[in-house]
Design a protein around this nucleic acid. Structure first.
Length: 358
DNA sequence: TACGCGTGGGT
DNA sequence: TACCCAAGCGT
């Protein structure tokens, strides 16, 4: 074990996180689900979702037997919904191929949808104690500073070099402690902004510190300016007060989730209303911010007597209370809650919001 | 290989 | 306000 790994393990013993939900108990299933939820998602945001998910799907078998709608509903609000589709598909594959147990073999893990190189490494190290490197945002930051990696984030040469360094430092002993430790080290000490170099036990061997470029590493990826897209969101109700929702295509934005219909401002929504509209009212426009673009949402409330296409599989009329059982994007939930305020509706998302604020 | 994929917090 | 990006993966 090299001095770097020793320092990381020491750090975890003193300051590391040891009480996270998925660490108690730490089973392969719980490690797997948590690692997928944690992809590009902050720890504080995941905790509530993880605990609810475990209550709802306590075993791989229960997850595999669940319906797609049940899984998507449990993921609703967490984002990157392909993760939920892949997790569900992988659970079924694990039952078929691996006798219902998360495999330990690297190639078998990698073959499961939603498990890439880093997640496979995390599962092997944390759930099975098999030394395997990981490379998440925290590890990238720590390694690129210690070794003064000047390449831009996301570029293939940079990624390759960081994987080489991750492999180089991965110890053969105490791998669980090391794996958790290097993430804690990156999250709490070697932070993106205001790193605590004065408290860092690796400062004397940190090449970025020696060169005075800690704040410039890692070098951020190039970004283009955000485009603005515009859409209608149609809150259509019938005379009984039911709300019309449709399932979005499996691929693309909000894939597989339920939403009120969305239509571009150019194409309009005559195909849905079928000129049967009664009252039509424009609600306040608002903007939803995505990572790479902004979506300007124009909500339209309309009451119709008869619907043009209510026979389709991917379309249904629901009462607002039924929305809790459907996986919905955050802005759709918000809009429905505004339009149909109820006391208990969306209790799940409110809980998550409260936890995030706490 | 570069890009699409959510949501919310931080600066 | 505008931009960054978080326990990355799939295509």
């Amino acid at each position: 074990m090299d001095d770097f790994a020793k320092a990381i393990i020491d750090y975890h013993h003193e300051h590391g996180r040891k009480q996270l939900s998925w660490q108690q108990p730490r089973t392969p299933y719980r490690v797997w689900v948590s690692e997928v939820m944690l992809q590009q998602t902050q720890v504080l945001r995941v905790i509530d979702y993880f605990e609810r998910f475990m209550d709802r799907f306590p075993s791989i078998a229960t997850l595999a037997e669940a319906t797609n709608d049940e899984v998507m509903a449990a993921w609703s609000g967490l984002g990157y919904y392909a993760r939920a589709r892949n997790l569900h598909a992988a659970a079924k594959l694990i039952v078929l191929r691996h006798n219902g147990e998360v495999p330990e073999d690297f190639a078998q893990l990698l073959a499961l949808p939603g498990i890439g190189r880093s997640t496979a490494g995390a599962i092997r190290s944390s759930a099975f104690g098999v030394p395997t490197p990981i490379l998440d945002g925290n590890v990238k930051r720590v390694l690129s500073r210690v070794h003064a990696v000047r390449g831009r984030s996301g570029e293939s040469a940079t990624e390759k070099e960081l994987w080489r360094l991750a492999q180089l430092h991965t110890p053969t002993e105490e791998i669980e402690t090391y794996t958790q430790g290097i993430m804690d080290f990156g999250a709490n000490l070697c932070r993106k902004v205001h790193p605590l170099c004065e408290q860092c036990s690796l400062v004397s061997s940190c090449q970025a510190f020696a060169q005075g470029i800690v704040d410039e590493i890692p070098v951020p990826r190039k970004r283009t300016r955000q485009p603005l897209r515009r859409t209608y969101m149609l809150l259509m109700t019938d005379r009984a007060g039911r709300l019309f929702v449709e399932r979005r295509p499996q691929s693309g934005l909000w894939g597989g989730l339920w939403s009120v219909p969305m239509r571009s401002l150019e194409e309009g929504y005559e195909d849905l209303a079928d000129s049967q509209a009664g009252e039509v009212s424009q609600l306040p426009t608002f903007t939803h911010q995505f990572t790479h673009f902004a979506l300007e949402i124009h909500p339209v409330r309309l009451t119709i007597d008869r619907f043009a296409r209510d026979q389709e599989d991917a379309a249904r009329w629901v009462v607002p209370e039924e929305c809790d059982a459907l996986g919905m994007p955050a802005p759709t939930k918000r809009l429905i809650e505004q339009a149909f305020p109820t006391t208990h509706q969306n209790a799940q998302s409110n809980q998550a919001d409260d936890a995030a604020r706490a």
